[in-house]
Each structure stands twice: as C-alpha cells, then as structure tokens.
Simulated assay, not measured.
Amino acid sequence: MESEELLGNLGQEENGVPKKEKKSPLISLEKDLTFYADSIKEVAVEIMMEGISLHPIFIAHQHEVSIGEVILNKADLNTDWTIQASTLEEFIQKGIIHPDKKEQFLKTYKKPENYMCVFVVVPQGANFVYYPYPKEK
C-alpha cells in the first residue's frame, strides 16, 4: 500500500508551493501518548482478551488514514493526534507489512502489556514506535 492511500489527500505542496518546515510533530505526539496511555492500554487488553489479535497496533496521525478504527479523536479531545486501533493481521491484509516480513516484525514487537505499538503517520512517511506505558503508582 502506498503512503498516498493511507494519507488520503495529504500533499507535500500547497497550491504548487512546498509547505514550510515546522518543528517536529513528535514532541506533541509524546504528550498525547502520555495523555492517552490508559485508554490505549485498555483497548489493547480488550483486543487481546476478545481473541481479535495478540498484536494490537495503534495508528497515530494528524490527517485521515484508511486503516483501523478511531478510538481517540483529536477534534473531540482537543489534542494534536488522533489514534486508531488496528492489528498485525490488518496491517498484513492491507499490505503495509508484507507477509514475508511477519516473523521479522514479531521479533521486534514488544510486549503489549508494557508497550504500545504505534504506527506514526506524518507527511514525510510512517514508522513504528514502541512507547512504554507509564509505571503504575
């Protein structure tokens, strides 16, 4: 699947003029992931307990993507990032992870009880990030 399919109508240019560089969106992502952590963990546990998948994946984006289901909408929560819930199986089905790369992916996949697996989508591309859940107090 091409990034254009995931990102919808998001472009690198506006009216034929390249967009100006902004500060890294990852700063606001860390803030939002910390804020969302309890909700994301709850959904991850639900995905695993209901037998949907042993490998939940969350998509963080600021635009529209066509994978997973919205669980935390930035517009509703007054945050910078929307989070969608998906699974390894859907990533393989949509061609984001090639079936031949499944085992390689699983070797790097961290325990979903301790880390959220986040597929971060930005205009420049997308990548997997493992973000630890805050320690229980």
Results as ranks from 00 to 15, higher is better:
K102D: 05
K107D: 13
Y36V: 01
K137A: 06
E136Y: 02
S86K: 04
L54K: 12
L29R: 06
A37Q: 04
P99K: 08
A37H: 06
Y36R: 01
T108G: 13
P99Q: 09
P18Q: 05
S66R: 09
L7S: 12
E136R: 06
S39L: 11
E136C: 02
S28R: 09
L26R: 15
A75C: 00
K110E: 12
T108C: 10
F58G: 06
M1C: 04
Y130C: 08
E42T: 11
K107G: 06
Y131I: 10
V70C: 15
F128P: 07
A44I: 07
G11P: 00
P112G: 08
E30S: 13
P123W: 10
S28P: 00
I83R: 05
K22F: 02
P132Y: 04
I52C: 00
L26Y: 15
I40N: 10
E64F: 09
Q84T: 07
N78F: 06
V65F: 08
L54Y: 09
E46S: 15
I67Q: 05
A37M: 01
K22C: 00
I47V: 13
Y109Q: 09
M116R: 05
A85F: 01
M1T: 08
K94I: 02
A75G: 01
T34V: 08
H98S: 14
A60R: 04
